[in-house]
């Protein structure tokens, strides 16, 4: 079945479910149109407007619209009469590769095709064009990615914490940071990202400037982060574990 027709069927099923859930009488006629279908048409749109009006009427009478138990998955299953597509609970269950499936964008507001990367391609032989979006340059190191034991986690069940929480950590940093004279003189401002590991005993190690801004700010940020007191360690499956953490240090001129 053409994609447009299938979309039309699924949307129709959703309208049917909305009507049923809200006791709205909706007579849906079988579409007999044989031409190219974009998934909707003036008749379909009229049904949506009708449902909206009916829901508004109910709301004026103090009845809230009911959408409980409605999923796209059930609509697709009902519309396809077999070959069910399971409901997709949030982003976690996105079907593989589905995003590449768009082949055009279309309504009156658009005159350019919209295709997603990977559909059809010809390599661009020209040298890459530079633009101005690149942000601060500076001393930058990336995470070490070795897999030495014990393992370093990035996300754990209970993330490590500065003694009184994140707000208190930001306050600590703000109080400790001394604006480097060189940065002040140059009018430089921005953020430095410092990465480190919170060890199982709460001590901090393996400090790195992940994104710097120069003018002495990287060294200052590193000094302040290194001076932090012991943290509450991260916990995973009931055990204190090593966790990588990232902290932004702000340099703002008053």
């Amino acid at each position: 079945m053409a994609k447009g027709k299938q979309t039309c069927k699924i949307l129709k099923e959703i309208r049917k479910q909305i009507a049923e859930e809200n006791d709205i009488k909706l007579v849906i006629e079988e579409c007999t149109y044989q031409g190219d279908c974009k998934g909707t048409c003036p008749k379909c749109e009229a049904e949506v407007r009708y449902l909206e009006r009916e829901l508004e009427k109910r709301q004026r009478l103090g009845k809230a619209a009911v959408f409980a138990g409605m999923t796209l998955g059930t609509a697709i299953t009902a519309a396809s009469c077999g070959s069910p597509v399971p409901p997709t609970p949030g982003l976690v269950a996105l079907p593989t590769g589905s995003i590449t499936a768009i082949d055009s964008i279309g309504n009156d507001s658009v005159d350019e095709p919209y295709l997603l990367e990977g559909d059809v391609l010809t390599p661009e032989p020209d040298s890459l064009e530079e633009d101005e979006w690149n942000t601060t340059e500076g001393y930058v190191e990336s995470w070490t990615d070795d897999s030495e034991e014990p393992e370093v986690y990035m996300i754990v069940e209970e993330m490590p914490k500065f003694p009184d929480g994140e707000e208190s950590m930001m306050q600590y940093i703000a109080e400790q940071v001394k604006y480097p004279a060189e940065a002040k003189k140059a009018g430089a401002y921005g953020r430095v990202f410092i990465g480190f590991i919170v060890e199982p005993d709460g001590s901090l190690s393996d400090f790195k400037v992940l994104r710097g801004m120069g003018y002495g700010c990287d060294e200052e940020a590193l000094r302040v982060v290194k001076s932090m007191p012991k943290w509450q360690p991260g916990m995973h499956r009931g055990k204190a574990v090593r966790v990588q953490y990232l902290v932004p240090v702000n340099f703002k001129l008053d």
């Binding site: 979309t7 699924i10 796209l72 949030g90 982003l91 996105l94 995003i99 964008i105 658009v110």
Partner: peptide
């Protein structure tokens, strides 16, 4: 500046009907 709007994307970005704004 928007160069594309695509309605009625199904099961593409999560659980619901979505519109892509490019």
């Amino acid at each position: 500046k928007i160069f594309g709007i695509s309605r009625h994307r199904l099961t593409t970005d999560g659980e619901g009907v979505t519109t892509l704004v490019a």
